[in-house]
Simulated assay, not measured.
Amino acid sequence: MLFMVIEHIKNGKAKEIYRRLQEKGRMMPKGLNYVDSWVEPNFDRCFQLMECNALRLFQQWVAQWQDLVEFEIVPVVPSKETVETITPML
């Protein structure tokens, strides 16, 4: 499944996040896959597209970053698949 992960960066801690990222990498457990990400110009939020089949892997990953980030994890469906689902109902 695909997930849009919205990271709300706590108290302007973007430098701490990037420092940890440089030192330790993303620290993602095997099976949690990073696809791509986008960051707001003011560093308030990061939007990451991730792929995963076991939600416990998100728990493991979030636990390593929760001191710097608050997370929203939203399941998403690609637009093409949504069109295929909805078209027969039109």
Score class of each variant (00 low, 15 high):
Q22V: 14
D44R: 15
E16D: 12
R19C: 09
Y18F: 15
E40N: 11
D36N: 14
P41V: 11
E16M: 06
R20M: 04
E16Q: 12
I9P: 00
R19F: 12
N42T: 07
F3P: 03
I9T: 02
G31V: 02
H8E: 14
K15C: 09
H8G: 03
K24A: 11
Y18L: 13
P29K: 04
L32K: 00
V39N: 02
E40P: 04
W38Y: 14
R20S: 05
A14D: 08
N11R: 11
Y34S: 05
V35M: 09
N11S: 10
M27L: 13
V39G: 00
K15N: 13
D36I: 13
V5I: 11
L32T: 00
I9M: 04
N33F: 10
S37R: 06
K24G: 05
N11K: 11
R26E: 08
V35G: 03
R26S: 08
L32E: 00
E7F: 09
D36S: 13
E40M: 13
V35D: 07
K10N: 07
V39W: 02
N42L: 01
F43M: 11
I9D: 00
K30P: 01
W38E: 04
M4R: 04
F3W: 05
G31R: 05
I9H: 02
I17M: 07
W38V: 10
R45C: 06
P29T: 03
P41S: 14
G12N: 03
R20W: 04
A14F: 15
E40F: 11
F43Q: 10
G12R: 04
K13Y: 01
E7K: 12
D44Q: 14
I17V: 13
A14C: 08
E23H: 07
Y18A: 07
M4W: 07
G25A: 08
R19M: 10
E23L: 11
K15H: 13
I6D: 00
G31A: 03
R45F: 07
F3S: 03
Q22K: 15
F3G: 02
A14S: 13
K13H: 02
Y34F: 14
H8R: 15
F43V: 10
R20K: 13
E40W: 09
L21M: 12
W38C: 06
I17G: 00
R26L: 12
K10T: 01
R45L: 04
F43L: 10
P41F: 10
Y18I: 13
I17D: 00
K10H: 09
Y34Q: 05
M28I: 06
G25M: 07
G12D: 00
W38K: 07
N42Y: 04
N11F: 06
D36H: 11
F43Y: 14
F43E: 08
R20H: 03
N11V: 01
R20E: 08
V35A: 06
L21H: 09
P29D: 01
P41R: 11
R26Y: 10
D36Y: 09
R26I: 06
N42W: 04
V5F: 07
K30Y: 10
Q22F: 14
K13C: 00
L32I: 01
